[in-house]
Design a protein around this nucleic acid. Structure first.
Lengths: 210, 210
DNA sequence: CCCGTTACATACTAAGCGGTATGAACAAGC
DNA sequence: GCTTGTTCATACCGCTTAGTATGTAACGGG
């Protein structure tokens, strides 16, 4: 009985996901409406009925796909009662698995979609920039919260600036993903992520009190 | 007597620089030939006389502008006889000044052009990817060389893997620049670079032998 | 001074882009 | 069952794009 000839919500979602994949690969400017449509089998009538334009489509991609994805990969794993520093180290360790779970195995080499949007569009469109900024802030708050918890538990050095440290961590994580993407080789990408993860884990160890 | 009506070398260089600026801001795909030409006052005849196409133009931008720029900003400052770790820390400290010198004050918020090219084009064009890869490798070798020197002088811990550490440093540096770019605010960008620089300096300190 | 080459400018083309207008088929409410 | 609004498909539009063909003016060598 699922043979309804129309399912607008599913249609809209399919368009959104196709737009995400296309923009993840080609960037916002490089992504073409026609390709997005070809990917879904839909036509322009459908797309422009659900979304007023390409920019609005990208906004929806950020709001409804990228942000939940960031949360799932980087914030959910912090939700454990555990030594905060160990939690962050485990977050790093499991990040590759979580990324491939979210993106699919072949899309790992396309890098972080949030970073892609941010890098391409921050200087060009305010709406895009604000959205990326909001997601990064949420991410940073999540990590900073863990560090603050650690400080109140006496497990993290008191002189650590939680927000700044969280920002540095995110910057380094994104940098590592970028370096991996740049190789366009799964093996080398995984190796780079591994190496950077170890370095950051060591860095995190240095935040521990005594 | 400099009023020669034609100066092909200067013309070619002007086109190259305009292409760099346009691509730095809009990316390769987003950069338009017409805009590049408008920036120089030249016309298509000139551009397609000197370069066979947009892609070749981008290759030339990478080879003749981006690579020397990376060398100037990140490798030249390593050429001092100094404690290697101090040299790297000074490299970080002076990087903002060197970047603004190379890019101009307003272009700091456009981020690292190498990273921009790499992120946008690595999955899309092999020639671009190879060039970016080569530049990154050169950068990495430069830093690794300093670390190796430090090890042979007994100033850097022997268990430090020079190449991996250099890679991690570059990833984190690029990540920091990306985070700064994302804000599109000079003040916040400078603050982020400062913060990440301090964190990395501290990390570098941890590489010192005893 | 002349001549061949280099270095451009101008005008044009084909293709792809985002977006729109129109209309038809479906779905839901009465 | 009829009607009304929703959900799409099709055809089209104006614009921009990278790239080309052609023509001309400047330059350099003899």
């Amino acid at each position: 009985m699922n043979k309804r000839k129309r399912d607008p919500k599913a249609t809209k979602r399919a368009l959104l996901e196709a737009a995400f994949e296309e923009m993840h690969k080609h960037g916002f400017q490089g992504a073409s409406i026609s390709q997005i449509l070809a990917r879904t089998g839909m036509t322009k009538g459908a797309l422009f009925h659900h979304y007023p334009g390409k920019l609005a489509l990208a906004y929806a991609v950020l709001d409804e796909i990228v942000e939940p994805m960031i949360v799932e990969i980087w914030l959910v794993p912090l939700d454990i009662r555990e030594d905060p520093i160990v939690a962050l180290q485990m977050m790093l360790q499991n990040s590759v698995k979580r990324m491939t779970n979210q993106l699919g195995r072949n899309a790992l080499l396309l890098g972080c979609p949030l970073n892609h949007f941010a890098q391409e569009m921050s200087p060009l469109d305010e709406g895009m920039r604000n959205r990326c900024n909001r997601i990064f802030s949420r991410w940073q708050s999540g990590i900073a919260g863990v560090l603050l918890d650690g400080q109140s538990q006496g497990l993290v050095r008191a002189d650590v600036d939680a927000e700044n440290t969280a920002m540095f961590l995110i910057a380094s994580i994104e940098g590592a993903i970028n370096m991996g993407k740049q190789t366009q080789s799964l093996a080398r990408c995984l190796e780079m992520l591994q190496v950077c993860g170890e370095h950051l884990s060591l860095y995190l160890e240095g935040l521990r009190k005594n």
